[in-house]
Write a protein that binds this DNA or RNA. Structure first.
Length: 306
DNA sequence: GGTAGACCTGGACGC
DNA sequence: GCGTCCAGGTCTACC
């Protein structure tokens, strides 16, 4: 049994973080719940599997679990949730930089900036690979497949499982990943990543805290099989590097509608549109108020996009 | 360093 | 019903 309060640097809104992108819809997240919190199943480094709930609280969040935890396990959960929500992140310079841009007028009031992260960088990288060259429905199916097939079950409710650790995936049969989990051509990418991390050759989690220039981190991300320019830019955003725009087919459509009279645009136009935002360009793109164009686009783009 | 062609899967579309 | 296209791209093999 545990019930912790974790303070957040202000401004902060749990709902804003949880809904910052689609991650909350991917297993082992469940949510968002009525108060815009979420549930999550986590395999701790001790090997125990627990479920915890995150809910809104004055000045921060409340984390609770039914399981009795050791002091070390409790600290691990608190540290994990702090990272997942970016509780100590500071966006005051971003808010100052965009103060005079009407299309970003809402960011400070809504406490935008933080992007919801899965518990480990490994999980975030795998899920990024699962977003490429497929629909959002496909991404959700593949994430559920990985969790249900290879994740460690929760003792009290074995139907619920954690995201598989690298060690669990490292021994997976690539054909099971391909045919049962239906990762398709992504199967060898995920398997290779799991094996490199499990063997100790690759210390992905160390990248979370390493202080690296964006170019160096991008180079490292691109060295991972299955991670190309789009996935690398998305992961850079998740890791707090905003000097790149995650250019995908969606970005082309939005920029085309916003500034190019619906004429086709390329990578150069997308980059140019946000170049002036410098170190904040990724966030400027992500939180730009596209609402007017969303309604225009609804007919031509899958409504499943989060 | 830049660009075709192939690539798993499943849903949408045209016929 | 069936073929084709393509989705929040990336890899490889060639220029």
């Amino acid at each position: 049994m545990m019930n912790s309060f974790l303070p957040a640097r202000q401004p902060f809104s749990l709902a804003t973080v949880v809904n910052s992108h689609g991650w909350v819809q991917l297993a082992p997240f469940t949510g968002p719940d009525a108060e815009n919190g979420f549930d999550y199943v986590l395999e701790l480094t001790s090997g125990r599997v627990i479920a915890f709930q995150v809910g809104a609280a004055e000045g921060g969040v409340r984390v609770s679990t039914e399981t009795a935890l050791t002091a070390a396990e409790r600290a691990e959960v608190e540290q994990t949730v702090t990272w997942m929500l970016g509780l100590d992140m500071d966006f005051s310079d971003f808010y100052t930089a965009v103060r005079h841009e009407p299309k970003l007028a809402q960011v400070e009031e809504q406490a935008q900036g933080r992007l919801l992260r899965a518990a480990t960088l490994f999980e975030n990288v795998v899920k990024s690979i699962l977003t490429t060259n497929t629909t959002w429905g496909g991404t959700k199916r593949m994430a559920s497949g990985l969790v249900n097939t290879f994740g460690a079950p929760l003792p009290d409710d074995p139907q619920r499982r954690a995201f598989p650790t690298p060690a669990r995936l490292a021994n997976a049969d690539v054909e099971i990943l391909r045919k049962t989990v239906r990762l398709g051509y992504r199967a060898p990418y995920v398997l290779e990543l799991a094996q490199r991390v499990a063997s100790g050759e690759l210390d992905l989690e160390e990248w979370k805290t390493a202080v690296l220039p964006t170019d160096e981190l991008r180079k490292r991300l691109l060295s991972l099989k299955g991670v190309g320019p789009y996935a690398a830019a998305s992961l850079l955003m998740l890791m707090g590097h905003y000097d790149a725009v995650p250019v995908d087919s969606w970005a082309f459509k939005l920029v085309s509608y916003e500034w190019h009279d619906q004429q086709p645009v390329g990578r150069a136009e997308v980059e140019k549109a946000f170049a002036d935002w410098g170190q904040w360009k990724g966030l400027a793109y992500w939180f730009w108020d596209w609402s007017y164009h969303h309604s225009l686009l609804d007919g031509s783009v899958s409504s499943e996009k989060p």
